[in-house]
């Protein structure tokens, strides 16, 4: 039922955008907000509904870095590597996170899909560099230690929610 609810939401999204091919990007944004990524079959469906070729939808979905065709972790950590943050050692932070989450080469998500790490260019918080965002929350003036703490807090909170859910 969850699948069909989401799927019906896709119809809504397409209708809200007047089934117009020009609205492809807003449509994909909304679909991604719903599914947290862009499932292939939904993209194919969007293409059919808008009367454009699936290859061109795939082309758009892979061009923009905010779109993802793979499911991402529940917490998306994006470390700023804009100029200001870079100068203040953002790549060190990134390394610290990768290490903390025990990610192997080429991996960007933890195996439990709790975290995904990426870099991003400038969050507009340069005054507080180095900065990062976790989902929608921005953190500034970070150190590897602080980052590690933030991750710990999340893990703890999740574990807590988990046990709550089980208790109920």
């Amino acid at each position: 039922m969850e699948t069909i609810r989401k799927f019906e939401r896709v119809f809504e999204i397409i209708d809200q955008n007047q089934r117009s091919a020009a609205r492809l990007i807003p449509i994909l944004q909304a679909v991604q907000a719903e599914y947290r990524y862009l499932p292939e079959e939904i993209l194919a469906f969007v293409a059919t509904s808008l009367g454009i070729s699936p290859a061109s939808v795939f082309g758009v979905a892979t061009f923009y870095s905010l779109f993802t065709l793979k499911p991402k972790g529940k917490y998306l950590i994006r470390v700023c590597n804009g100029t200001a943050c870079h100068v203040k050692g953002s790549m060190g932070l990134y390394g610290a996170i990768v290490k903390k989450l025990e990610l192997k080469d080429g991996e960007d998500s933890t195996s439990d899909m709790l975290f995904t790490v990426e870099t991003v260019n400038c969050l507009g918080a340069c005054g507080l560099s180095p900065a990062m965002v976790v989902n929608d929350e921005v953190y500034g003036q970070l150190t590897p230690q602080r980052v590690s703490d933030i991750i710990d807090e999340i893990v703890l909170r999740e574990a807590h929610n988990e046990s709550d859910a089980h208790g109920a």
């Binding site: 590597n81 870079h86 400038c122 507009g124």
Partner: peptide
Amino acid sequence: GDPGAFMDM
């Protein structure tokens, strides 16, 4: 998009 510019923001 310039990394490190946020005037327009």
